[in-house]
């Protein structure tokens, strides 16, 4: 499925500069080096981390999007950076587990 289709399933787009990006898997984690070591290119990355460094990590690990669970949102300067670096970011009201279960049925 594409990143854009997430909006139909309760994922709220915080910024979506690359809506056609294909989601090919899921990775869950808050420790950034684990994400860079283990996430695969194209994964949707589920996390509760919201500091500026997540944008660089998503860009370098080439994930298809960041999904912030537990209703976490971003500061406006982080949103700007994500837009500039072509990183899709969503917010989800449920837990990482809830989001993963939902995505498991969709992928």
């Amino acid at each position: 499925m594409t990143v854009e289709a997430l909006t139909e399933y309760g994922f709220e787009a915080i910024c979506m500069p690359d809506p056609d990006r294909e989601i090919t898997g899921v990775y869950i984690g808050d420790l950034l080096s684990w994400v860079m070591g283990r996430a695969k290119s194209g994964d949707a990355w589920l996390t509760i981390m919201s500091n500026i460094n997540i944008v660089a990590v998503a860009s370098l690990a080439d994930t298809s999007c960041i999904i912030l669970a537990e209703g976490v949102t971003l500061e406006s300067d982080v949103i700007k950076t994500a837009e500039a670096k072509d990183i899709n970011v969503f917010s989800f009201s449920g837990s990482c587990y809830d989001a993963a279960v939902l995505l498991s049925g969709l992928l």
């Binding site: 808050d30 080096s33 460094n53 997540i54």
Partner: peptide, 10 residues
């Protein structure tokens, strides 16, 4: 901040 997991050098 999500760093310091001891995974950098590995």
């Amino acid at each position: 901040l999500g760093f310091g997991a001891g995974m950098g050098l590995p």
